[in-house]
């Protein structure tokens, strides 16, 4: 019983504003993590709290080395937080694996599996029966215009196409939240813009709960409903920003005055966060 009270108190403390905690797909409450190196404690995350609501696209933006990958490892259950709690679908999941869909920075496709098998094998890991996984993979690859390369090995595909397959794999996993870790960072600028537009379109059709990490302010503003701006390590949340741009959005949303104003604000915050 105490736990419930404590949680409420914490929620008040950090000022969770949007909606009730009930409908949160992913919620982090006061999560801290530090590593020991050379007998010294290096704090990486400092009492971080955030939430991703049902069908919400939430982005974390921060300077490099602000512990975003660590945060994802905690959410994925690969590592345990020092303190705080991670909740998926309202249940505490600290250290529990297999509850998120994940798209890493590198496409991470298995070179010995065909494109279709790459998608379907991830789905069987998520508990989908093999025949159904195959059917889903084939159907969706056709839907994203990759039907004619479904039987090929991934090395035939361009970087952008590999990332589409990687995204599809995360999207089709029947899991509460999708975590995308700087998925376009390795792409050239042109492919990147193209991929953002593609992702935007697909996401607006599907409306999954997404936690997205990026270094790019434009990318964050183009895609997100809300943005958390992180400080340099140990990462704290500097500000939570609601992006007021209407949906469906288009690739040229950066022309809007609201976009420009928010971009300026975030640049200011990141500048503050990095100066000593």
């Amino acid at each position: 019983m105490n736990v419930g009270l404590e949680k409420e108190a914490k929620l008040e403390l950090i000022g969770v504003s949007e909606g009730s905690a009930k409908e949160a797909k992913l919620e982090l409450i006061g999560v801290s993590k530090s590593y020991r190196r050379d007998r010294k404690r290096h704090p990486v995350l400092d009492r971080l709290s955030l939430r991703v609501g049902e069908g919400e696209f939430v982005t974390l933006i921060g300077p490099s080395g602000s512990g975003k990958s660590t945060l994802f490892r905690l959410i994925g259950g690969v590592e345990l937080p020092d303190e705080g709690s991670i909740r998926i679908d309202g249940k505490e999941t600290n250290g529990k694996r297999g509850l998120i869909g994940y798209m890493p920075q590198q496409a991470s496709l298995f070179p010995w599996l065909s494109v279709a098998a790459n998608v379907s094998s991830a789905l069987t890991t998520a508990g989908i029966e093999a025949g159904e996984a195959k059917r889903l993979a084939a159907e969706w690859l056709r839907r994203i215009d990759l039907g004619d390369v479904a039987g090929e090995y991934p090395h035939v595909l361009s970087g952008g196409m590999q990332q589409r397959v990687s995204f599809l794999r995360a999207l089709l996993m029947p899991r509460a939240v999708m975590c995308l870790d700087e998925p376009f960072a390795a792409l050239d600028a042109l492919t990147r813009a193209e991929m953002q537009a593609w992702l935007l379109r697909l996401w607006e059709e599907e409306r999954r709960s997404v936690l997205f990490v990026t270094h790019s302010i434009e990318e964050a503003l183009t895609l997100s409903d809300r943005i958390y701006v992180l400080s340099r390590a140990p990462a704290r949340i500097l500000k939570e920003i609601r992006v007021p741009l209407p949906r469906p959005r288009r690739g040229d949303v950066w022309k809007e005055p609201a976009f420009v104003a928010l971009k300026e604000e975030i640049m200011g915050l990141l500048g503050e966060g990095t100066s000593p």
């Binding site: 496409a107 070179p111 970087g159 952008g160 390795a186 193209e194």
Partner: peptide
């Protein structure tokens, strides 16, 4: 083709 699976692997077949 062993050893390559990253994005840098191929630009041959772009969308």
């Amino acid at each position: 083709r062993p050893g390559t699976s990253n994005a840098a692997a191929g630009k041959r077949r772009d969308a």
